[in-house]
C-alpha cells in the first residue's frame, strides 16, 4: 500500500507534529517504502491466532492506599518550561 501526501499530513496532525514541506515529502517516500516492505505480513495466515500484547501475565497487585513517595513539589516544578509560583503556566486554552 503506497502512502499519499494527504495521509502523511493528516497523521502528522494526529501525532501533534509540525512537519516542514521537505519532511512531509521525505516521509511520504520513506514511510511508503517501509510499509511496502512490511506488506509481506499481509500474506501470512493468522486466522484464529490470538494477538500478543505483552509476554508476562499481568496480575493485578493490591496495596494499601497510602502515599509512599514523599511529595517533592520543588524538584518536580524545577523542570517546568514556564511557571508562576506553584503553578505550571500554559497558553490560554479557552477563547
Amino acid at each position: 500500500m503506497s502512502l499519499d501526501r494527504n495521509t502523511v499530513h493528516h497523521v502528522a496532525l494526529l501525532a501533534r507534529l509540525e512537519l516542514s514541506e521537505q519532511e512531509e515529502a521525505q516521509f511520504t517516500d520513506q514511510l511508503g517504502h517501509i510499509l511496502e516492505h512490511f506488506e509481506e505480513l499481509a500474506a501470512l495466515n493468522t486466522d484464529g491466532i490470538e494477538p500478543t500484547s505483552t509476554v508476562v501475565d499481568l496480575i493485578p497487585r493490591y496495596r494499601d492506599d497510602v502515599v509512599t513517595n514523599p511529595p517533592a513539589p520543588e524538584e518536580l516544578r524545577a523542570n517546568a518550561p514556564a511557571r508562576d509560583d506553584n503553578f505550571f503556566k500554559v497558553p490560554k486554552i479557552i477563547e
Binding site: L41, A42, T46, I49, E50, P51, T52, S53
Partner: peptide, 15 residues
C-alpha cells in the same frame, strides 16, 4: 487491524 493487530498476531507465531 491491517498493521498493529496483524503484527501482534505474528508476534504470537514468533513466540
Amino acid at each position: 487491524d491491517a498493521y498493529y493487530l496483524k503484527a501482534q498476531k505474528v508476534r504470537t507465531l514468533i513466540r
